[in-house]
Design a protein around this nucleic acid. Structure first.
Lengths: 350, 350
DNA sequence: TTTTAACACGAAAACGTTTTCGGTCTGCTG
DNA sequence: CAGCAGACCGAAAACGTTTTCGTGTTAAAA
């Protein structure tokens, strides 16, 4: 197994010094055209490329971004990664991915693994377990060590860092208003427990929309799904909970679900109750993924523009990284960017 | 912005040499218990962690795996990544992701960016454009430079490396046989152009199944979709092509699709033709993703076990990396692992 | 008392770069 | 002919580790 060629080897081969080779390759004026061309030709022949690791060590900069997300088998998160990767590559950065799997411990471990020189900064969305335990010391420590973080989607206000979020409240409100304007009188919501920040916000949007239209909110119409265990029977228990919702609210004619899965499951259950979509029940879901687009009927959704979120997060992070090089310790001020949601109308509403 | 603490700083602070600090932290017997404990306490206090980059440079090993895939917003690929990440982390490796976006150039660039010390080996699935152009020099070069590659799903035989594939032919054959046994007489296939290796193999499985049951294959029943442009109107043209299929084959009563999207689109189109699923038309698709599970009717699919593929690929790569350290240049022999598919029956078949 | 061995630690090289600082020529000016 | 500028190149430091080898001290053995 032959290793990649190094400056040293080229130098030896051509009987010049390492410095000369380095300079020749970077077109330094210090080097005569003769040797410059000679070196360059040789380097090209042997397909020389500078060793990234050595560069990282020298420059104390890896040009790599660390991403920590709860899971990757998820339309929204993979869209975000696509966005991050896009601008990262464009700006000369690589992307290294860690999955927390919604676990606090894995989140901490993953961050530790990466925060030792491997990366220059983090882009992350917080694990549910972390949100529940409200233990944020690992974020604070990383920031204290001078490593910038950009949080997206699931964020916490008390951490001083840039953030990219979605206007969850407004998005949800628009969705519920749409249902109201479409004639729905009894609108249910299928959401998560409150510790998931986005779930809470979307519930809030739902409540605000009702209030705006003088509709009394009823607790029986609010289903907060406990998805602590994403086990195999999760789907089944979800269906049961939704069945319950329909049984206790026979007059229900509109549903707002905070994610696609809840929405399609609701539709599935509704069918069992003999409800026709969208005639007798209209459904809107948050998150515009494959399911919304391709299930039948296709879902009216609030699109989050995951890719745009990723792009913006990457830009924020890289900007900070490169500004840090220039300015040395100006008082930092952090930005929270809100990416607008968009209501995409499809067949599940009138 | 304070940097992370280094051995040098600890050494200075404690008035010992760098070597002593290093040895103390690694519990060397050369160091007296006194200084050992002193150093360790200090290191713990300041939360010292060895710099990964420096270690990589010294050991000429980054303990990082590079993944190159065509896209990440794709159930199968993200499942594979999950699997890779799982065993990589367990075995002390990180994972760095590059997206080729099905483009040859981006594939090449991405590999060059990573192959300069950043990673120890590749796990990849080939871009469609690369398959089409049949230009594999970048794979050969990386291998020649001593960097192992493991290919999965979309592979090429002529490249000497480990491979993890799915028994596409058998899986497809089983699926089509299922349709035949369920009473289908006129079975169509919606597949890709032949340059996509897996598409070709799945088509082959379809043909073999028909032949086994003495059914004559008809070219009008074989739809090879050209998805060169994944543009916005792609879905529309897909629907048109499928409409065509139904029109020219009014007696069609079974469909085998090589991916989920083709399957659900086929169902959508079939509905327009007044066909009921699974009563008058049965559908089986390859790839068991969210769509299959949650669309209505849910799809009978050939599951590829993407996560298992990822796990296996990572194991193969890491095994090779760590064996390389031990043995120096034994004649290499490469392995091709076949992950069995599984037919998952749902509502789209009788 | 001298030799030896164990013990504790430090110097330095190495990984592959880039860059600063000198140094050695050559040819030219005064 | 002395001095000098410019052209061209090399030595060495630095990034943060680990590890080999050397060295000095002390206590035990001869």
């Amino acid at each position: 197994m032959k290793r990649k060629i190094t400056l040293k080897q080229i130098a030896k081969e051509l009987d010049v010094s390492i410095s000369t080779v380095s300079k020749a390759l970077r077109n330094s004026v210090e080097i005569s055209e003769d040797t410059r061309l000679k070196v360059q030709a040789f380097a090209k022949l042997y397909n020389y490329r500078p060793n990234n690791i050595a560069l990282s060590l020298k420059n104390r900069k890896s040009n790599t971004i660390g991403i920590i997300i709860p899971e990757i088998v998820h339309h929204f998160f993979s869209k975000v990664i696509t966005g991050i990767e896009l601008v990262a590559n464009k700006r000369g950065y690589n992307v290294i991915v860690g999955l927390s799997n919604e676990s606090f411990d894995k989140e901490v471990i993953n961050m530790q693994m990466l925060a030792n020189g491997s990366i220059d900064g983090f882009i992350l969305s917080i694990a549910k377990e972390t949100l529940q335990q409200q233990d944020y010391h690992h974020f604070k420590e990383t920031i204290n060590q001078g490593m910038p973080i950009v949080m997206f989607d699931r964020v916490i206000n008390e951490i001083p860092c840039d953030k990219v979020i979605v206007d969850d409240v407004r998005g949800s409100r628009k969705a519920v208003e749409k249902l109201i304007n479409n004639g729905c009188k009894t609108i249910g919501i299928i959401t998560t427990k409150d510790y998931v920040s986005v779930g809470k916000l979307r519930t809030q949007g739902y409540l605000e929309a009702l209030e705006d239209h003088k509709i009394e909110a009823e607790s029986s119409l609010i289903l907060k799904v406990d998805d602590k265990l994403l086990s195999e029977n999760h789907l089944e228990s979800l269906e049961n909970e939704i069945s319950n919702l329909f049984e206790t609210n026979p007059k229900i004619d509109g549903i707002f679900a905070v994610n696609e899965l809840y929405a399609v499951t609701a539709i599935k259950v509704a069918r069992k109750f003999g409800l026709e979509i969208p005639k007798s029940l209209q459904v809107i879901s948050f998150t515009d993924g494959v399911l919304s687009k391709h299930s039948m009927p296709s879902l009216t959704t609030v699109s989050q523009h995951g890719q745009k979120i990723g792009e913006k997060a990457a830009d924020l992070l890289i900007n900070r990284l490169e500004q840090e090089e220039a300015i040395e310790e100006g008082e930092e001020v952090f930005e929270t960017v809100v990416i607008e949601t968009e209501l995409i109308e499809r067949e599940s509403t009138k």
